[in-house]
Design a protein around this nucleic acid. Structure first.
Lengths: 182, 182
DNA sequence: ACAAGTATGTAGCACTTGCTACAATATTGG
DNA sequence: CCAATATTGTAGCAAGTGCTACATACTTGT
């Protein structure tokens, strides 16, 4: 029964869990410490400041996000961009992805207010999704790079509209898209 | 020199100003009161609670947003959807619109966390923009309703990508769009 | 004029925030 | 073993949070 050594690495997982469940707004030191089974005192000791803690935490969460994407690989290749769009929309709508979606808008808001670490975390998540999407496009797609960027733009727009209760607009919007090289 | 009667209507403008300049995060009672030249005590007196104050404030800001859109009417009609998209992108990139853009992501984040008033404010702003965009489409557009929704979806996606420092993806995405009926 | 509301100032409460001082223990290298 | 270092607990601070109690005014309708 070796006592687990407490370190950044052992503290990050439960804190990431807390943030994915409750968002960043209530993620102050004492609730985070409670979730990790320590005290605010120790969080400062291990991370130096809340600011650096959050930076590390966002980075760690981006890694979790990467794993979640990796695990949803596989399944046979798709034959049209339309089909690909539907698959990605379905992926982002999965129940296990909802905590990330909820967190996502806080990250975007934080990035526009120049909170340290937010922009980096947001950007890395976008690039992950973009690269993953390229692997989802039809094999014979004439322009996977451009196609993926186009689809990603549409998808993010649709997700935002969904977030403010305008799903209908997004649905009509997606339906009206001529998806370039089909 | 009649003393101006202090009321909700006279308090909202300076508070809206404060929120557009500083965002919603630092908009606690005392800073808001200071911006409006009163005390937190009076804000509670006039609005009942901070929750209701923010609801009213978001509604009021949505009205300001509507005015800003109205004022940018005019200019001759455009002849292609592509041109329309560029015009709307230019509109949302205007300096005077940036406070709204910064505030926007806080509203979206708040909406996903069910903060009262946020979803309503966000939705009304989206519909305003959508309706305005319909007036910007080419007169001979075969499907202004669907076209506007499609363009709006693209635009919101591009704005989000821009917010997390992925402008390049958005530009490529917009460039790859086949804009339906041109 | 007088009672009844309306409006406002001053103080404060109970709580949370990030963070620190101080002391105690655990671990480890010589 | 013993000294240095790493880790942790307890307590607290100064500031900020939404909100309230209480005492004033200032304006009304009668």
């Amino acid at each position: 029964m070796a006592k687990l050594k407490i370190s950044r690495d052992s503290l990050l997982p439960p804190m990431a869990n807390f943030v994915l469940e409750n968002g960043l707004a209530p993620a102050s030191l004492r609730p985070l410490a409670k979730a990790a089974g320590t005290s605010d005192r120790m969080l400062i000791y291990h991370f130096g400041s809340k600011e650096r803690l959050i930076e590390d935490l966002l980075e760690y969460i981006a890694d979790i996000y990467a794993d979640a994407i990796d695990q949803s690989f596989g399944g046979e290749r798709v034959t049209t961009r339309q089909e690909c769009l539907e698959r990605v929309m379905a992926f982002t709508a999965k129940a296990e992805m909802q905590p990330f979606m909820a967190l996502w808008w806080e990250i975007v808001a934080g990035a526009t207010h120049n909170k340290p670490g937010y922009l980096e975390a947001g950007r890395s998540m976008i690039w992950l999704l973009l690269n993953w999407m390229k692997t989802q496009l039809p094999i014979d797609d004439p322009d996977p790079e451009g196609g993926a960027r186009y689809l990603l733009t549409m998808i993010e727009g649709a997700l935002m509209l969904r977030a403010v209760g305008c799903d209908e607009i997004a649905r009509a919007g997606l339906g009206n898209a001529d998806l370039g090289a089909a």
